Simulated scan of single mutants.
Amino acid sequence: MTFTLSDLEQIIATKSAASPDKSYTAKLLQNNGKEAAKKLGEEAVETVIAAISNDRAELTKEAADVLYHLLVVLKGNQVPLDDVLAELERRTAQSGLAEKASRKR
Rank of each mutant, 00 (worst) to 15 (best):
M1R: 11
M1N: 12
T2C: 07
T2H: 13
F3V: 15
F3W: 10
T4H: 07
L5M: 14
L5N: 12
D7R: 10
T14R: 15
K15F: 00
A17C: 02
S19T: 01
P20N: 05
D21C: 02
D21Y: 00
K22C: 01
S23A: 00
S23C: 00
Y24H: 06
L28F: 02
L28I: 01
L28M: 14
N31A: 11
N32L: 04
G33W: 00
K34Q: 13
K34E: 09
A36C: 03
A36T: 04
A37M: 04
K38G: 05
K39D: 05
K39Y: 04
L40D: 00
L40W: 10
G41L: 09
V45H: 08
T47E: 11
T47V: 04
A50K: 03
A51N: 09
A57Q: 11
A57H: 11
T60H: 12
T60N: 11
K61G: 11
E62A: 14
A63N: 04
D65Q: 14
V66N: 09
V66F: 01
H69I: 07
H69N: 12
L70N: 06
V73S: 02
K75D: 00
G76N: 06
G76T: 02
V79S: 13
P80Q: 07
P80M: 05
L81I: 12
L81R: 09
V84T: 07
A86D: 15
L88T: 13
L88Y: 12
E89L: 14
E89G: 10
E89H: 14
T92K: 13
A93I: 07
A93Y: 05
Q94A: 10
S95Y: 06
G96M: 02
L97N: 08
A98V: 06
E99S: 12
E99Y: 13
K100P: 00
K100R: 15
R103N: 05
R103L: 15
K104I: 08
K104S: 13
